[in-house]
Each structure stands twice: as structure tokens, then as C-alpha cells.
Design a protein around this nucleic acid. Structure first.
Lengths: 344, 344
DNA sequence: GTGAAAGCGCTAACAA
DNA sequence: TTGTTAGCGCTTTCAC
């Protein structure tokens, strides 16, 4: 829109973007003073600061963060890698991360692997290229190339969702223990024919870990621990359909331990449509503590996982580390809570 | 980790990051050829390309995207601004955007305004600083400063969710028409005492637009169009609680037109718990077409909005534009579908 | 408290 | 097809 750019020598600048130098000139200071006025206000005289801020306002200066990052090799960008955006649990973690990080002036670069570890590797590469200040990724499992890349990176890495020995920082919960917890609950309730139903356990391996805990408890009681693995993603629909399948394959089933609340609620609602009584004919349990579970009748027995809290805590720990605190290889267990509803 | 950097003159490089120059040297070509081999493979000889790629592999080169962006003033970063991450509809739009954009090598910079237009302005400023290739924002409403900033920006701007004359590109649906559609349906069903229930309509102004359409239809029939506005965000819980409130304030209510499916499903489940028959005692309608609505009994009458599709289409249009196609100020109506369930 | 000089790692422009 | 040169806009280093 401005056509007053005097073509002196060969110029590469094409945009009419206002630069810090122009601000500095307008404020009657050097570029570096202008820079300091904006980034380290306390290292500059009251007077200079005021002039610079006034010039910024007047010229409509928007800092070029790309240039700043290149010069300082710091970006205030945080890479966040999740396996799925359909599954609400990851979104809630992102939510927690986001509100905490944004308040500290960090931006989120979002990546979705679709449960593909090779895709994760590609994303990590790309994000490293952005000089991200830190990286948050869901889970402790990575492919070899990704592992190597992460191990040699000199910025904080936060692995969330599951508790364990990770590359660097870790915030999560013990999924094996959660599986045990629910299995014990079902045993306590007197159920003996218990089926575990999960969806794509190779991808959603945390659900697989819960199954491990579940099986452990059942086997300790000398009880079989049959598994039904669905080939769809977890959803109400899949849960509804699984009910028929489970009852066909395991006619004596007394209780179903679902890998998540979507499946469980889908099955519970389907059971009602079919005139099955819950828990009389069939008991149903889930995992996550989604609101939906508390609004169906009977209320869904589930395990509440603090997802937003997980995101917030992860963000806080990252911020601590990024502010220079030496917090190495810390693990944080956010725990879980058994929520007993009427469905078991 | 490498300590073999010969301190020749005063160096600023501290990290052991492999640079393109090193790759070029290892491949026996100039830096610019190495650059071309990676970014414009067809503009380079077979031989050079092979040598460069081999060197990249061998040295573990990760391109510095920050430097590249500064030099080219193109970033392949797309800013995405939404008002909320709790509301699943925005997440679904993000999902659609993401799968399409990531496939084309773009990354998403995510921002959340929490329904605050001033916050939107701040985010836009920050994102401009990253030389984003394009910006996607939810809605057509912005504050003055933001509007000015957007108007002077020379990259594509995509406003999604609602249809209308925007700054640049637009993909959405007509919320007033959607409100009319549902209201007409309720009228057709014979209901006359119809209450519209929404949550924070100043923030979720699209729900307010649907109310406008709703009221229009009712008033054309000479019918009152009472509104109950909740002071919480839309949720199952809020929907459940609203039921009591509505029946207290409007005892003759025959049907409730909820601003979204969360509220509607919450009310429907609450009605069942209270022994109210739906639609016998009270008819219930929602908006969005969330899966939940199809799994409750009776199925929820709602309006299906194609959210992921909206994201995908928005992404495709952006990509068209970014690839040089001149597509100015196009509007895309993604439409909506009335889904008649048993709840009305 | 302030500034001059140099350079972050890459690519656009121009030339060969 | 390949290379040379000169930046992109900012911040670091070091000196005043």
C-alpha cells in the first residue's frame, strides 16, 4: 500500500513490513536499543523505552519472530505431538498445555501422528527445524530414528500420558495399575466372567497396558481374562456393536471392562435399547471419566484420568525447566480415581 | 557433543547443528545447489541430487526452517485460531484442516481465544510475526484493531464456521437458516410453546444467529419465542440443569430448541431420569449432529453440520490459493442437514 | 545505559 | 545446470 520505498540498490525486501530499524530510527535510538526496549525493558532508560514504544505504536510495528528466532536460536514455540484429535483425551491434554503455555507467551505447533511412529519421526524433524523451545509428545514409545533424534536434542522433551522412564521429563499415569484397579473392582463386585474390550490395541497401546493389569489381577484369582479386540477406533458406535459380538463369543459374560468410556457408554446405551439390564444382565465399566458417563443411567463405573491437569502440569514443568531451573528426568504421577457408578 | 569446532574467529554458533553448507561441502557442491536439491529437486542434476541426499543422510542434517523462512519470507506455517478447545466442533474443524494441510507439508500454529476478541488480536499479531502463509480463524467478527491488521495483511485469510462476507475466503454455513429450519420443523410437528435455550450467546454468537432464525419463523406464525440464556458453557451438565429451569419459567413448554447437542442430550438424559417422556411430555432438539445424539433413546432431532468437511474444504481452498490460483473472496456454503430423530 | 559490527542459516537475484 | 553475492530482520558480542 505504501509506494514511497525509494529503490536505492537492488533490494530483496518486497513487503511493506515495518522493521525494528525503522522503529529505532523513528525513536532516535539504535536498533539494538529498540530491541532491548521491547525484550528487556529493564535494561533501557525510561526515556528510550517510552520513545520506542511510542514509535512501535505509531508505525504499527509487528516484530518478525522468525528473524528473532534465527538470531537468538530461541523461538518460544512448543511442539506438541499427539496420535489423534478424534480421541478427546488428547485434546484435553492440549487444552491444559495450551492455557498454561500461552499465558507464558509460548505458542503451540501442533502435530498429529495418526498413531504412526514414522509420522512422529517426520514431525519431530520438522519441529526441530523450527528451533522449538521444547517438545511434548504423547507416549514413551518412538521408533529408532526418532529416539536417536530426541536423545541428541538439547531442549526439554516432555512425554505425557503414561508414567515411565522417558527421555527427559514425564507426566502421566500408570495404566497397568489402572487396569488392575478396575479389574479388582469387578472381582470385588463378584463378577467372574469378565471380558476386556479394546480397539486397536497395537495403536492405543496404553489400552493394552490396562489390559495387562486387568489380566494380571484375574489370573491371580485363577480366572480367565478373555480379550476382544475391535478393528475400529473407539467410539459409541463401536461400543454398541461390540456388545453383540462379545455376547456371541462369550455367552456367559457377566461384566465387560471397556478400554474407554466411548466404547463403554456406546455399549451401555445399546444394552438399554436391547432391553438388557445394566448391571443385572451385564455390568459395564469404562476408562477416562468422560462427562457422558455421569449422565447415562445407570452412571458408568469408570476410572477418572486428570487429562487437563496432566497438560497443565506438563506445561508448568516445562516452563520451570525453560526458565533455567535444572529439573532433570523427573517423573510425575498424576494418578487416577476409580469412579463407582451404577453400571457395575 | 562434538568438540572439534576450530575456534577461528569469534563464533556465535554454539550448537552442533549440521548446516546446509556442511552438507554442500560434503556433497562437493555449493550451498545453493544443496538447497535446490532439497527444495526443487527437478532443477538440479540427477548426480548432484544424489550426492546431496546422501550427505544429508550421512550427516543427519535437519533443515533449519527458521533460516529458510527468513530468507524466503515463506514459512509453510498456517495459523489457526479458535475460540475454544472444549467445544468439540472446533476440534473437528481443526482435524479437517490438519489432515489436509499436513499432507501438503504445512504445519499448524494453534491459538485459542477463549471467546475473547482482544485475545484474537494478540494472537494474530504473534502469528503474523511468524510469517504465516495463511491464517484461519473461526468466525467473521473481530475487533477494530484486528480487522485493520487483517485487512492489510497480504496472505490468504480464511474465516470458517459461519457463512458471510468476510475479509477474504470464507467457508461456513448459514446459522440463521439453520435456526429457521429447526423452528419450522418444530412448528410442523405441531408444537406451539417452544423455548430456545442457549449458553452465553454473546460469546457463542452463532447460537444467537440460530435463535434469530428461530424467532423469525415463530413470529411469522404469531408465536412467542421465549429465550433462556444460560450463564455456563454448553455441556451435558448445563443441559440437564436447564431442563428444570425452563419448565419452571415456562410451564407450558412443549418443545425445547437447544443451541447445541451437548445441552440437548444433557436435557434428554435428565428428562429420562426424571421420568419425563420425550417427546410426549417434552420434545427436544439440538444442533451439530454429534454422535451422542444418535445413541440416546429416542434419537435426538438435530441439525448435522459438516465440521470436518468444513475444515477440509477450507484447507483445500487455502492450498489452491497458496499455489498461486487467484481465488478472491470466495464464499463456500457447506450447508447443513436436518436429522429427524424420535425426540421431537 | 548505549551502540557498532558481525552473523544466525538459508534463499532470491543475477550471472555464467 | 551451477555458482556468486548479498541480503532476510533480528540479536549476540564486545566495547564504550
Amino acid at each position: 500500500m505504501s509506494k514511497d520505498s525509494p529503490a536505492t540498490v537492488k533490494q530483496r525486501r518486497n513487503s511493506d513490513q515495518v522493521t525494528l530499524s525503522q522503529v529505532a530510527q523513528a525513536a532516535g535510538v539504535s536498533p539494538i536499543t529498540a530491541s532491548r526496549a521491547l525484550n528487556h525493558p529493564d535494561k533501557v532508560s525510561e526515556n528510550a523505552r517510552r520513545n520506542v514504544l511510542e514509535a512501535v505504536e505509531r508505525l504499527g510495528y509487528v516484530p518478525n519472530l522468525v528473524a528473532g528466532s534465527l538470531a537468538s536460536s530461541r523461538s518460544r514455540l512448543i511442539a506438541v505431538i499427539v496420535p489423534s484429535l478424534i480421541n478427546t483425551v488428547f485434546v484435553e491434554v492440549i487444552k491444559g498445555l495450551q492455557e498454561t503455555l500461552e499465558a507464558e507467551g509460548y505458542q503451540i505447533l501442533l502435530g498429529n501422528t495418526d498413531y504412526d511412529l514414522d509420522r512422529e519421526y517426520q514431525l519431530v524433524r520438522t519441529f526441530f527445524g523450527w528451533s522449538c523451545s521444547a517438545l511434548v509428545t504423547a507416549g514413551l514409545r518412538h521408533n529408532q530414528a526418532c529416539h536417536t533424534l530426541l536423545a541428541n536434542w538439547d531442549h526439554p522433551i516432555m512425554e505425557v500420558m503414561e508414567l515411565g522412564k522417558g527421555m527427559d521429563l514425564n507426566v502421566g499415569l500408570d495404566h497397568v495399575a489402572a487396569g488392575r484397579c478396575m479389574a479388582s473392582h469387578l472381582i470385588d463386585r463378584g463378577y467372574r466372567h469378565i471380558v476386556y474390550v479394546g480397539a486397536r490395541l497395537t495403536q492405543d497401546y496404553r489400552a493394552g497396558m490396562r489390559y495387562e493389569g486387568h489380566r494380571e489381577v484375574l489370573q491371580a484369582q485363577g480366572i480367565e481374562a478373555p480379550l476382544v479386540e475391535l478393528d475400529t477406533l473407539g467410539s459409541l458406535q463401536a461400543g454398541a456393536e461390540s456388545l453383540t459380538q462379545v455376547l456371541a463369543q462369550h455367552p456367559h459374560t457377566q461384566a465387560i471392562h471397556f478400554a474407554n468410556d466411548d466404547l463403554a457408554a456406546g455399549a451401555l446405551l445399546a444394552a438399554q435399547r436391547q432391553g438388557l439390564s445394566v448391571p443385572g444382565d451385564i455390568a459395564i465399566a469404562g476408562f477416562n471419566g468422560l462427562p457422558l458417563g455421569q449422565h447415562v443411567t445407570p452412571q458408568l463405573t469408570t476410572i477418572l484420568s486428570p487429562r487437563e491437569e496432566m497438560g497443565r502440569l506438563a506445561a508448568k514443568e516445562l516452563i520451570r525447566r525453560l526458565s533455567g531451573k535444572n529439573v532433570y528426568r523427573r517423573q510425575h504421577d498424576v494418578g487416577f480415581t476409580l469412579q463407582t457408578g451404577g453400571s457395575t
